[in-house]
């Protein structure tokens, strides 16, 4: 099933062309990698897919089962975009609880379980302002998955994480894929792309070019 289609999308910022007639298709149940140098438009692509920005031309088509009427953004999407965002004066659990309260779909125990999965102690009283970058990244990862989101849009999900955590979370993403979830991620680590992705798109000449995973890396 085609879950997300990028159709002839063009986008520029302040006269700088990011995408020009770019096309891509993301099917359900696969893991996709997006490659490209810094500033090539990986984050822009994710913001386009999530509805945070509109294409100048072309369309982003999201499968109807992930859209609801009068909504600006797709539903059931877990995202990491730009950088981990958090309230510095709250603990990791408190931050996650605030997000969870918006949709009110999960209980405290679900949040705690997710925190343990990503390698964080849910009962720690440490405020997020004193978290390491890797711990902040784990909170970002936790908020993207804690509500059982079926589509994960992850910009550099393993950034600053230790080797063991990366290994655990890679296995988690593979398990999610087997469950039928769809994952689109970027990574500067070629190993992540090689191990995880079924298909890779490279941003080249303002287009999304499908590349053979092994050939690319």
């Amino acid at each position: 099933m085609k879950l997300i289609e990028v159709v002839n999308v063009s986008k520029s910022f302040k006269g700088i062309q990011i995408f020009n007639q770019a096309n891509a298709v993301f099917e359900q149940g696969n893991i996709y990698g997006i490659l490209g140098p810094n500033g090539s438009g990986k984050s822009v692509l994710f913001k386009l897919i999530c509805g945070f920005i509109k294409p100048d031309q072309g369309d982003i088509i999201i499968h109807p089962s992930y859209r609801s009427r009068r909504a600006d953004f797709p539903q059931n999407f877990g995202i990491i975009i730009d950088r981990p965002g958090y309230a510095a004066g709250l603990t990791g659990f408190e931050n996650l609880k605030r997000w969870a309260e918006i949709r009110n779909q999960i209980k405290d125990e679900d949040i705690k379980r997710t925190m343990r999965v990503v390698g964080l102690d849910p009962d720690a009283r440490q405020k997020m302002k004193s978290y390491s970058l890797g711990m902040k990244q784990k909170i970002a990862f936790a908020q993207a998955i804690m509500e059982n989101q079926q589509v994960l849009i992850l910009d550099e999900p393993f950034n600053a994480m230790d080797v063991d955590s990366v290994k655990v979370l890679r296995e988690l993403l593979i398990k999610y894929k087997q469950e039928g979830r769809t994952i689109i991620l970027t990574s500067h680590n070629e190993e992540d792309i090689e191990l995880l992705c079924d298909q890779v798109y490279q941003i080249r000449s303002h287009k999304l070019v499908p590349v053979n995973t092994m050939a690319k890396v």
Partner: peptide, 8 residues
């Protein structure tokens, strides 16, 4: 981003 997508 994490808040707005939850409000949809």
């Amino acid at each position: 981003y994490y808040t707005a997508i939850r409000y949809q």
